[in-house]
């Protein structure tokens, strides 16, 4: 009787599992088919194991998009971590007149629709001569990652006991010294959250890339995938191979450190 009552639970669990997981299974299994196999049996799962699509995707320039995405993400996330942590220090640990206003100014960026800034940023990158280069993306990526980063970092910094700072001050530490030797080492979990959150969001970012990049040499992965769609108009397995390869890095990182990724992605939302 007891196990009988669990049947509805297993049913719901299975339905959710299929709805969440099936598209991925379909994507990978289709990527492994040849085109004619796909048209004969579009729904058969894992009937063939053909790696040709994957090598084709590399030939079409996926490596370049991939490299661009890595470059932009690493530079922007690195800069956000440094700049964001620096700004969070006085905002969370020093008293001054415009503290609250400045904090709200940064935080309110989380609510901001990116579209409200697109045209001026487009014009700006043109007049700076960096339109259609990866440099055009880095500024906006840093700026739009700052609000959530400052939000997470100030929350953590407030928790660090004041006494540690005072002890360092007694020893003649400057604010920069305190920041480097007292605050930063204690901030590791928060920095991890900031890095993961921003890395995943920037890796997947689309709007700025769409507006600021036009030539294939400078495209990031999401933009490159969108371009693939034209190349693969009827070649569904080819496109699925591209999607699989583009999604793989994050899925692998996720499978190896699930807890950290989940924490990082919700770091701003789950309040302590």
């Amino acid at each position: 009787m007891k196990s009988f009552s669990k049947i509805p639970l297993y049913f719901i669990a299975a339905v959710l599992l299929i709805v969440s997981g099936y598209p991925f299974v379909y994507m990978i299994s289709t990527a492994l088919k040849t085109q004619s196999e796909f048209f004969e049996q579009p729904f058969a799962l894992f009937t063939s194991f053909n790696l040709e699509n994957f090598t084709n995707v590399f030939k079409l320039g996926l490596t370049g998009y991939f490299f661009n995405s890595v470059l932009v993400t690493v530079i922007a996330v690195g800069a956000v971590v440094i700049i964001g942590a620096l700004a969070s220090y006085p905002l969370s640990r020093m008293k001054f007149r415009f503290n609250r206003v400045l904090f709200l100014l940064f935080i309110s960026g989380m609510m901001l629709p990116i579209h409200a800034t697109l045209i001026p940023i487009f014009k700006l990158s043109e007049s700076m001569g960096i339109y259609d280069t990866l440099f055009a993306l880095i500024g906006p990526y840093i700026a739009f990652s700052l609000p959530i980063s400052i939000f997470i970092l100030t929350q953590f910094m407030r928790e660090i006991p004041k006494s540690l700072e005072e002890a360092a001050k007694m020893d003649g530490c400057t604010h920069l010294g305190i920041f480097r030797h007292v605050i930063m080492p204690m901030l590791k979990p928060a920095l991890m959250a900031v890095i993961i959150y921003n890395a995943i969001h920037l890796w997947n970012e689309f709007v700025f890339a769409l507006v600021l990049i036009s030539s294939p040499e400078s495209m990031t992965l999401p933009l490159g995938l969108q371009a693939f769609r034209g190349d693969f108009a009827v070649n569904v397995p080819g496109l699925m191979a591209a999607l699989t390869l583009a999604s793989l890095p994050i899925l692998i990182v996720y499978l190896f450190s699930q807890e950290k990724v989940v924490k990082g992605l919700t770091g701003g939302a789950v309040k302590g």
């Binding site: 006085p90 020093m94 045209i119 700006l124 700026a143």
Partner: peptide
């Protein structure tokens, strides 16, 4: 103290002003 605060906040503030605050005002103007 004020100088320290400014030094800590200014990198973020400059980027933020350039890519968030200025563009919103420019959008309104356009």
């Amino acid at each position: 103290n004020a100088l320290t605060i400014l030094l800590f906040v200014s990198p973020a503030l400059i980027v933020y002003a350039m890519y968030v605050i200025y563009p919103i005002l420019a959008t309104l103007n356009y």
